[in-house]
Design a protein around this nucleic acid. Sequence first.
DNA 1: TCTCCTTTTGAATCGACGA
DNA 2: CTCGTCGATTCAAAAGGAG
Lengths: 363, 363
Amino acid sequence: MTTMTEAAALPLNRVLPGDCIEVMATLPEASVDLIFADPPYNLQLRGDLRRPDNSRVDGVDDAWDSFASFDAYDRFTRQWLSAARRLLKPDGAIWVIGSYHNIFRVGAALQDQGFWILNDVVWRKTNPMPNFRGKRLTNAHETMIWAGRDQAAKYTFNYDALKALNDGVQMRSDWTLPICTGHERLRDEDGDKAHPTQKPQSLLHRVLVGSTNPGDVVLDPFFGTGTTGAVAKMLGRDFIGIERDEGYRRAAEARLADVRRFDATALQVTTGKRAEPRVPFGQLVERGMLRPGETLTGPRGQTARIRADGTLVADRITGSIHQVGAALDGAPSCNGWTYWSFQREGQRVPIDILRQQIRAELA
Amino acid sequence: MTTMTEAAALPLNRVLPGDCIEVMATLPEASVDLIFADPPYNLQLRGDLRRPDNSRVDGVDDAWDSFASFDAYDRFTRQWLSAARRLLKPDGAIWVIGSYHNIFRVGAALQDQGFWILNDVVWRKTNPMPNFRGKRLTNAHETMIWAGRDQAAKYTFNYDALKALNDGVQMRSDWTLPICTGHERLRDEDGDKAHPTQKPQSLLHRVLVGSTNPGDVVLDPFFGTGTTGAVAKMLGRDFIGIERDEGYRRAAEARLADVRRFDATALQVTTGKRAEPRVPFGQLVERGMLRPGETLTGPRGQTARIRADGTLVADRITGSIHQVGAALDGAPSCNGWTYWSFQREGQRVPIDILRQQIRAELA
DNA sequence: TCTCCTTTTGAATCGACGA
DNA sequence: CTCGTCGATTCAAAAGGAG
């Protein structure tokens, strides 16, 4: 959906160096379909933490996670969110992940800037770090906020694909997934973890399958070691990464070079009836699949006759298949396609069968 | 822990009428051990919502949940929080429950006022209302914030009691509990629900066991129909309720009169048996155990390829592992978990092996 | 009383498109 | 803009009723 000029101006599938607020300011507005952001959590750790066996926990103590006050953190948040919002297309959306240290401030800032929250999603970790001191509950989840650019945004939501991913029941707002460990966890030459808060690919897989389409542009302003880019590449989405730390950038670039894109068939995803072309009921009459004068039957024996223009008459009611069905049932609305049947060889046949025939021809 | 004079001044185990901000101002400072608050969520619903069968959803349209703007909601939040904080003893703590509509604003206000967040706790509903229009994820959880009066507060945390409640492993920050239905749900003379958002006793049971001791004073400034009071009474804690709606107050008082101390009802609902967790096939794909594009093999050499949403494609058939297996065999049904295998190092491996791996992690 | 099936219901920010 | 029309969309529990 990008024009040539936009596409030319966008540095796709690269990791841009620098501070994300400054770099985002250089990119063209309304050019990005989705933003996934994993900003610093502002953890406020005091001293170091030791396990019961006295070994030291390797916590997040990097300078980039340190802010002088809530106020400073809020200023930072509002700046990067504002820059990010400028880059979103009108129907774009954003995901932000955080913990209780920062997510309330991020959520309030999103609302204040006009983003429209669609869901908050809980990532339940199957294998969280235990609470070694027994002073609080095990912090076993993180929170993601999914928001449209504004209330009017017609955001992408692949409902049927996520439903398929969840064994045929609609996807819920709590996602149970393991943290990033094992081979997936990037390590430096010394065997230490390359990034303290590397997110699992499974998390990004679900986000991108659910809220983007192949060919969409996904921006990650806190790219880190590039989980967003890796999954985007696998799924045939374009990405833009921004990362100011050279070490993380190098790790991400090495990682991305090894990623293969899934083939076209694998990228296809379950779609529902919404994606199908519309078929006017009148077309069934025009094509002679149903004849004017023929009688249709409703679910409880209601009858109506077809007129030459594809409207129905029942009793004193006239109108579309939907309107007559709704009127007969005293219902506020009705899907005429699933309401009415016709007779063929003594059998009741739903009219939706005929619509499916036409759609099959169109495919 | 209360002195004689404080105890004398406190209206214990009663439901006080009136606006909570005004009523709290009349109570003595530093007199309460714990506050549990379920403030209005500011839902901002538009129009009515119908189920696919055309029945109408009885949503929250009460005047008390309506605010003119985020700004108005913030002012309200800061006022009641500030009044509540004055009432807390130095080592007191607060719980606030909310949804994505309001919880970010509440969380930020808590931090701004000097409360110190201890955990955010996710209430995962076993039986949430589905998303009827298929436009978002099922909103299947609510969020609670647990915070000390300030960073120095030596808050109460009954670590071992919660660990015992959780089958001997540390209590996590995600709690899986059913919503309030059935006999527990209070109804008026007409059989309608007495309160639109009654919380389950199991939730309060866990909160009060974990963060109060017998004899503590628990304040609920948005008392509603009195779940907090009922569970407090059962558990031998004192409570103070504030509720401005007379109908809710009467329902709460009738309810409380029937509650006996040490009633085991709440305990029973808290500990439920766990069934074997369902593992969607899609999770094997998300987690990279199987790749999109990879080929699965059936018992007699049938093949199908995996797509990014966890569905299979074989010939012209698309669907779940079960559906495609059944279609290829011309069978009415099929257990895809035992039907399909994948290749690893030249060997055929049943996909069920991978499901067992995931279940082992969850156990 | 027990089983089986049907009905009801729950804190919900729940369209798209053309005229 | 608004307005009218098309037509897509639900899961787990518990209550209630039939046999």
